[in-house]
Amino acid sequence: MSALAAELQGHEPMAPEPWRILAVRREVADGEVFTWTLEPLSGRAATARPGQFNMLYLFGVGEVAISVSAIEDDGAVVHTIRAVGSVTRAMQGLRTGEVVGVRGPFGTAWPVADAKGRDLVLAAGGIGLAPLRPVVHAVLARRQDFGRVLLCYGARSPRDLIFRDELDEWQVRRELDLRVTVDRGTADWKGDVGVVTQLIDRGGFDGRNALAMVCGPEVMMRFSALSLHRRGVAPERTFVSMERSMRCALGFCGHCQIGPHFVCRDGPVFPYPVMEPAFRVNEL
């Protein structure tokens, strides 16, 4: 056995690596959604691809799967987290400079390269914008490679919109067709009201030549896929990102199965037809 193989055999895949929080940013008013920029203490880490996730670990509390919401050139990784459970709520109190654990990156990536020469439709619901943001960055970096780029983003209410500065910037740059809507407007909300699927229904892309990436609650992805299909986007060129309980991210713990698929290993990004049974059969 080679030295490397021996070292790998002895490596505990559930052991987190220490990473430092370089920056913390509140995404919504009460800080329930926040963004961390992280760098590895060791100085080296595998580069994540858009759509992949890391297991973020908090000493003494536990671990949670969070997709990357940006990938920086210097190896830093950005995660956007919603505080909804014991681990993420504990994470909410952390500050710049503190050390957390990271395992990853894991899972499949959005097929950004396959969208070259095509129109690209990105449909995001709620915090589902976070896993799609690295795609926007990748597209803007090589804008000429793509046809029309449409980003449809729906949230529950104006206060739930994340990445607001960046949304404004994208709106101003006009390199993509950004459409934002909320389910419930407020008195001071000047933007659109309605569900995200209606933004897709309005078209503005060549369905037959388009590739679509959808991320949000399952119902939203299901209806978005229908709207995309109506607009001529082939189901096999529609991609969704699934959410299940990922505890080990290695295909060992069995929690994230959808039919024959381990979301951690075979996903989270799947072509829509692969996930169609999960959308159709209740509680699969």
Binding site: V33, F53, G62, V64, A65, I66, S67, T80, I81, R82, A83, V84, G85, S86, V87, T88, G125, G126, I127, G128, A130, P131, A155, R156, D160, D183, C215, G216, P217, V219, M220, S241, E243, R244, S245, M246, R247, P268
Partner: peptide, 15 residues
């Protein structure tokens, strides 16, 4: 359906 309503939980890509 209020699909973005957040429940309790710790897992998931978004947190």
């Amino acid at each position: 359906l209020d699909i973005y309503a957040s429940g309790e939980g710790d897992v998931g890509l978004g947190g």
